[in-house]
Amino acid sequence: MKNKVRIFRAVYRLTQEELAEKLGVTRHAIIAIENEHYDPSLGLAFKMSDLFGVPIDAIFIHRKELETLKEDDAAGMAENGSHREPD
């Protein structure tokens, strides 16, 4: 699963250690989540959501959702391209 934990951590100016402490987990867990090697439990995802003040789906992006977004982008670009006025 894709996630934006690193981005949100940077926005809130937190170190991995500080974020781990706030969430009550180890720094190894934060590293694994940021590197997308480990998907956190629902409980931990909710804790992150509360901490960053955004919905869970703003932090974690399911691959299927990502593919849909990419398809939408591609469709949008194709549509824009077809309606482009000739120079």
């Binding site: 781990a20 987990v25 180890t26 867990a29």
Partner: peptide
């Protein structure tokens, strides 16, 4: 005092 056990370490 620091967290040394969590869901990741358990996994």
């Amino acid at each position: 005092s620091t967290v040394i056990e969590d869901e990741f370490t358990r996994l």
